[in-house]
């Protein structure tokens, strides 16, 4: 069976897998972004706090994802739970680091001015600091998403959802005619999803980065 015939025959399954892959990564990215920016906001003002935040998230990133999944299985079982936890944890690092860097990079005189015209701490954060720190945070989100695409593929080994299942099906049936089709479909599918997400982020950047600080 040629690759195109394979795609034609299995398109239902492949589309389901692709959708689940994208949706798992997307949902985990939303959680990771909210948590990451929150950690950044809480810790960026104290040197100690932000170094703890960055060191601990960097340590998580050093751990191979298969080992992280392996450590989670005894605690939460197989399937969706370890996938979601792993993806969220790994997605955090670039976002936490970039929100701390971004928030620290905001010109203090602007924050002072905002304080001077009577903005509260929350309003300052919402109207001045976060919009100015948004471009680096968005970069962090892009980097995270690309990484999670690959990790989600590995999570399929622990019965997680997504295109990784195609790859592992191919590995399990090495030597059979469809092995290469299955692996190729899974791998190319993930590459395409990653590029689509990246394009979406570029668009999101055009729409959400304040006009005044666009480069």
């Amino acid at each position: 069976m040629s690759f195109w015939e394979y795609l034609g025959n299995r398109h239902q399954q492949l589309l389901t897998d692709a959708f689940q892959h994208a949706s798992a990564v997307f949902q985990c990215m939303v959680i990771a972004t909210v948590l990451g920016v929150l950690i950044g906001v809480v810790s960026y003002r104290s040197g100690w706090g932000s170094s703890v935040a960055i060191t601990s998230t960097a340590t998580v990133l050093t751990i191979p994802s298969l080992a992280a999944i392996g450590l989670l299985i005894p605690l939460v079982g197989l399937g969706v739970a370890p996938t979601v936890i792993t993806l969220t944890l790994y997605g955090l690092l670039p976002i936490v680091r970039n929100s701390i860097v971004g928030l620290r990079g905001v010109d203090p005189s602007l924050v002072d001015a905002a304080k001077g015209i009577g903005m509260s701490r929350i309003t300052r954060l919402r109207k001045v600091e976060l919009p100015l720190a948004w471009p680096p945070i968005l970069t962090g989100i892009r980097v995270s998403t690309q990484m999670l695409m690959g990790i989600a593929a590995i999570a399929a080994y622990a019965s997680g959802p997504g295109l990784g299942n195609e790859i592992f099906r191919g590995i399990a049936s090495l030597g059979s005619a469809n092995a290469i089709n299955s692996v190729l479909a899974g791998t190319l599918g993930i590459v395409i999803l990653a590029l689509l997400f990246d394009a979406a982020y570029v668009l999101l950047g055009r729409l959400t980065i304040p006009r005044g600080i666009r480069v």
Partner: peptide
């Protein structure tokens, strides 16, 4: 940049099919 979007496990699986175990 495209290479970075390729999942490691997919790359490895393709190589295994191509070069053997």
């Amino acid at each position: 940049n495209i290479g970075q979007a390729t999942p490691a496990i997919g790359l490895l699986a393709l190589l295994v099919i191509w070069l053997g175990i």
